[in-house]
Simulated assay, not measured.
Amino acid sequence: MKKVLISAVTALLLFSCQNDQTAESKDSEATALTRRACASQQVLDEQLRADPTLAIRMNEIEAFTNKALISGKLVNGKVQIPVVVNVLYRTAAQNISDAQIQSQIDVLNKDFNALNSDYNSVPALFAGVKANVGISFVLDQIIRKSTTKTSWGTNDAMKKVAQGGLAPTSPTTKLNLWSCAIGGGILGYAQFPGGAAATDGVVIDSKYFGLSGAANAPFNLGRTGTHEVGHWMNLRHIWGDATCGSDLVADTPTHNEENYGVPAYPHYSTCSGTPVEMTMNYMDYVDDNAMYMFSTGQKNRMAAIFVTGGARAAFGI
């Protein structure tokens, strides 16, 4: 098990790690992907280059998070998050139905409250740290807009009216989701706490949004949403976006790198101590049907952003 990194300098170095994915424009109607690709770290790297003060804000959030974890001053009671879904569509398939949107909200509620049917599939080795995060979601509003764009990329164009997108609604008190054709093989991406309110939220390609309609296997169980909302709540990829890196959580094993598909259990890391990797964690890159848990350390890290003084305290806790 790794130790939590609390040094601001170390955290800044972590934030600068590069994820190798690209977001080249490709037609959204291309063949369904078979390997998960999340652009959250790539987008963060670009935001850090564009705004040096973001690193300072994120280091302050990291210091606050660690202080909250050490003091035990975390959220008491339930957090309920109103969700605004912004649908940008060129084709009928991209104009996802209200039912498909609600299915994504339902998946988030199950996955963040240990109500997912595969929760009890967690191996005995990790049963002691599997967690009910205790955060719920309610659909607040759906906003739709027709567009001629074939793909939006990862430069936040879908969030900007001047570029044909939809601006976020009340982003300091509501979670905004965008459903659109991202392109470049990217399933989704999120903005970490500390970023600008004007671009805050989560983007999910319409083909991988929720359970029905256009959702495509092996990413048809809504877990792209769960993964990206985890980022929005300050979780890192479980491998720390570096070989044998740190996700800043104490109870998750060190991973060599991302895992894909449906890994056989146990899958051993070659990092120090050769731990069994927690491949079924929502913050790995495995298929939707192979991820089904958060850890207690991840739960506490997410809870820390909602306490008074936390990065998302405006959600009314």
Rank of each mutant, 00 (worst) to 15 (best):
I204P: 00
Q41K: 15
A162N: 10
T22S: 11
R49N: 14
H237C: 06
L48F: 05
Q21D: 11
G184I: 05
E24P: 07
P52D: 07
E46F: 14
N116T: 15
K160V: 09
P253I: 02
P218Q: 08
G240F: 02
I204Y: 01
Y189V: 11
D287Q: 13
D287P: 00
I105A: 01
L12K: 14
T270P: 05
D200W: 03
L13N: 15
L5I: 13
K145M: 03
I186L: 08
T274A: 12
H227E: 05
F15S: 05
G230V: 02
N281A: 08
T224K: 00
T252Q: 06
F137D: 01
N76M: 07
L44Y: 04
N234E: 06
T147A: 07
N66D: 14
L139H: 07
K174T: 05
A30D: 14
M278E: 13
G183Y: 03
Q42R: 07
F64W: 06
T148G: 13
N220A: 10
L74D: 04
K149R: 15
D287H: 15
L54C: 09
F64S: 15
L69N: 05
T34Q: 06
T274G: 04
K160S: 03
R301G: 00
S16L: 12
R144H: 07
A68D: 03
A198M: 05
Q102R: 12
G201V: 10
N155Y: 15
I186P: 00
Y285K: 12
A242R: 14
D140Y: 11
R49W: 08
N300E: 14
G316A: 08
N256F: 14
R144N: 07
G316Y: 01
P218E: 03
H227T: 01
S117P: 01
L12W: 10
G153H: 06
V43C: 09
G309E: 10
N113W: 04
Y292Q: 02
M302F: 10
C17E: 09
S151V: 04
S97A: 15
L44K: 04
L221P: 00
G194M: 09
G213H: 08
P52A: 10
L69Q: 02
S117K: 15
N116W: 11
A304W: 02
V85S: 04
E62H: 04
A92K: 15
G240I: 02
